[in-house]
Computed example of a mutant assay.
Amino acid sequence: MTQPAVPGSATRGAVDLTGLSTAPAASASGAAPGGSDQVHVKVTDENFTEILNRTVRVPAVMVVVSSRLPESVVYLGEVVEVAKTMQGRLQVVSVDVDTNPGILRALQVQSVPVTVGLIQAQVVPMFAGVAPKDQVREILTQFLDLAVQQGVTGRIEVASAAPSDELPPLHQEAYDAIERGDLAAAAAAYDQALVQDPKDADALAGRATVALMQRTEGADLAAARAAAAERPDDVAAQTLVADLDLLGGHVEDAFGRLIDLVRRTSGDERTAARQHLTELFDLVGNQDERVKRGRTALMSALF
């Protein structure tokens, strides 16, 4: 169970977000990018200063996600749904770590999703992972109490809020299927999207992630870890744990496990471990710094 409002649970080390953007800062009463009436706005390395300064007047909760982990995006949607019931007392901002390395470095995120609060341009650590809606509501209510204590009581106008982050129909169908646990339907929706556009990068990434979820469906993490500890050179046992780690957002743990397996094995077993690791690299994306480091480590392990 995710624990609420535990300082340091979502990020590691000091959090300094003040130097992320060189763009002019907005005034405390200024509108958030995308319009002050939006319950949910996206944050980037470039516009973060503007959004951060807005929290002097209106508190915000930031959800850190990865577009390559659809379950993190589904969770973001649930947080937004809870926020919509709070009469505009807070705004939800989201950041995709795959495309915003500055925020990723500043937060020192270890896994996604991560949820943090923003009050008076300061970070309030909340929790890592997902939580049920009722627990999210409780945590956000406690966060708003803290905001009131600090005199941050502004509101956004939710009545005229425009829909944000609308997805193509088949992508939305896939996300909805993931949310209800129907992975076969999610895979079918992504497959149909790829028939329409074979170069749809989001559909390719989503389809690969659903395949990962299907491979790990029903797996018991504790049992998988125990089996991997007992059989350190068993490719099937090690790749299952690596898949579970990646699905949970522990990207570097997954890569490290398989790189170590490549070092210890030879022949067909080494080939299988290397190929599986390469598939995980492709899933995370070559632009990710962790993938770049992982490929370098893999070359070292091979030679």
Rank of each mutant, 00 (worst) to 15 (best):
M1T: 13
T2P: 04
A10T: 03
L17M: 08
G19P: 01
T22R: 12
A23G: 06
S27L: 12
G30K: 07
A31K: 08
A32E: 02
P33D: 03
G34P: 01
D37F: 13
D37S: 14
D37A: 12
D37H: 14
D45V: 08
N47W: 10
L52Q: 13
L52C: 00
T55I: 05
A60G: 07
A60L: 07
M62S: 06
V65N: 09
V65H: 06
S72N: 07
S72W: 12
V79A: 10
E81P: 01
A83I: 05
K84I: 04
Q87M: 10
Q91Y: 02
V92D: 02
S94N: 06
P101H: 12
L104D: 11
L104F: 14
R105I: 03
Q110I: 03
Q110D: 03
Q110A: 06
P113N: 05
T115E: 07
V116S: 03
V116C: 01
V116L: 12
G117H: 04
G117S: 01
G117K: 06
L118F: 07
A121F: 03
V124H: 08
P125H: 11
M126L: 15
F127I: 06
L140I: 15
T141A: 13
D145Y: 13
L146C: 05
V148M: 10
Q149L: 14
V152E: 08
R155S: 08
V158H: 09
V158E: 13
A159D: 13
P163E: 15
S164V: 14
E166Y: 09
P168S: 05
H171F: 08
I178K: 11
L183I: 14
A185N: 09
A186D: 09
A187H: 15
Y190E: 04
Q192P: 06
Q192W: 07
L194M: 01
Q196E: 15
L204P: 03
T209N: 15
Q214I: 15
T216N: 15
E217N: 15
D220T: 08
A222Q: 12
A227H: 11
A228W: 02
E230R: 09
D233V: 06
A236H: 13
L240F: 09
V241D: 02
D243M: 12
D243P: 08
D245Y: 14
L246Y: 12
D253N: 10
A254K: 07
F255I: 02
F255L: 04
G256D: 08
D260K: 06
R270N: 01
R270W: 04
A272W: 07
A272S: 05
A273K: 03
H276K: 07
L277G: 00
T278L: 09
E279H: 10
L280Q: 12
F281D: 01
D282A: 13
V284P: 03
D288H: 13
D288T: 06
D288W: 11
R290T: 02
A297Y: 02
L298D: 00
L298G: 00
M299G: 04
M299P: 00
A301T: 00
F303C: 00
